[in-house]
Design a protein around this nucleic acid. Structure first.
Lengths: 235, 235
DNA sequence: CGGACGTTTCGGCGGCGGCCGAACTGTCGC
DNA sequence: GCGACAGTTCGGCCGCCGCCGAAACGTCCG
């Protein structure tokens, strides 16, 4: 079975109104009986039974028979994550329109750019990697700021501690880089790093678009602060 | 259009062998022409054209007409993330088999317990959920502390700010609960919350094992601090 | 201008699958 | 045991949709 067929089969599990309603209901983490789900989705018990069979066979749900009841639950955190990511996309703003300029991205943009309010491109990825190497970030799975990371932001980097307070926005968040296809630092910490680099004259915008470049003093600063070799970023 | 119908419509975009093959090919980040994709997936150009129309209308792809060519690309990092998460699940180990609650787990352990240095069980999950509802945590994907969360730990909760500094351990981390199958707060913040609850006399160990119970003053405190209904945790 | 080519639209075909009701199995409670 | 109830299996209906080829459209190039 080809990879695309597997992907299609997985997506097909959620590509039905009734099954989607089941999974959304099950996002509450509880175990539901088959008839509860049937009533919730407004379908006949026989229909629900078939849907549950598919979802269990597909590995998205697990079941437990107890007496005359069939309890089902999302199969685990990975299954829940899947449903949640798809569902969350419904509320989200669509991806910003992209300008397709030929089929390749300009070299300046690939080297470094801003992504909303944080840094992306090779520059953003390199800074993120260097922060992780210094123990300021943990990159397993998502992107979590360590306690050392907080200290570093307000200490050596010289960020205003007030920027790190009073917002419901996550301190650190993983953002997927389009050109590098790597995660880099976003969230409050990403914005703080970006604004400090601009404030110190360490990066500058190139022209009027989102591309940025590292200045000579910025190269020195990154070497000092993060033990980062700026060579590949200025070439 | 109901939420489940929206979810189903989104999943349906990938629930076809040919469209899935398109999206997997587009994961390379390049822009492909319609006929390239048709050849790649082994379908007639007319068929590919219809699929591309659906994917673009569904917001998963963006297109750019240039002369007699139609270039398409994944719509952006969020779309790429979606495809990648689904595709990565194909290679992944299935969720571990779950033993559903009720068989042998003691009720006291299920209600609340410690997991290393943080709280788990229904108590741990309830606190995590309440913190997320107050904007102190963000649970999408992993578990990230927000700036408000940091303020809350050292303010209302009364944690020593020094505990949040000088460690390479992540501030917040998602830990999977084995009775609830839900993620709950771990990392430095999880340890801090746990130690504050013990220090305040709000939770107490039961016997010599890892089970803990909420004290009456703890129930009041959680109501005050997190707007959390402690009823299900004490019953 | 004419031919080649990339793409789109349309009609028609076939299969998949979601839905229900009816009949059946198994469990619980009286 | 017997009825009530939860769930399953099966057959049949129907609509959706993926597929193709043919034809049309628009662009590029000689």
């Amino acid at each position: 079975m080809s990879r695309s067929a597997q992907l299609a089969a997985l997506a097909a599990l959620l590509a039905d109104n009734t099954r989607a309603a089941f999974c959304l209901a099950l996002l509450d983490g509880r175990a539901w009986t088959a008839s509860e789900l049937a009533a919730h989705a407004g379908v006949a018990p026989s229909t629900a039974s078939e849907h549950l069979g598919r979802l269990v066979r597909g590995g998205l749900l697990v079941e437990r028979r107890q007496g005359r009841h069939r309890y089902v639950q999302l199969a685990g955190p990975r299954a829940a994550e899947l449903v949640e990511l798809l569902a969350s996309r419904l509320d989200a703003v669509p991806d910003p329109p992209r300008t397709l300029r030929g089929s390749r991205v300009s070299e300046a943009l690939a080297r470094g750019r801003t992504c909303y309010d944080h840094l992306a491109g090779r520059l953003g990825v390199a800074i993120t990697d260097a922060m992780a190497a210094r123990g300021l970030l943990e990159l397993t799975g998502g992107c979590a700021l360590t306690a050392d990371g907080t200290t570093w932001l307000t200490g050596p980097l010289g960020a205003d501690p007030g920027q790190l307070r009073g917002t419901r926005r996550p301190l650190a968040r993983a953002c997927l880089d389009w050109t590098e296809r790597r995660t880099h630092l976003a969230g409050v910490a990403g914005a703080v790093v970006c604004s400090r680099l601009f404030a110190g004259g360490w990066v500058r915008r190139v022209g009027s678009d989102r591309a940025v470049r590292l200045t000579p003093s910025g190269a020195d600063a990154l070497r000092d602060l993060l033990n980062l070799d700026p060579e590949p970023l200025t070439a």
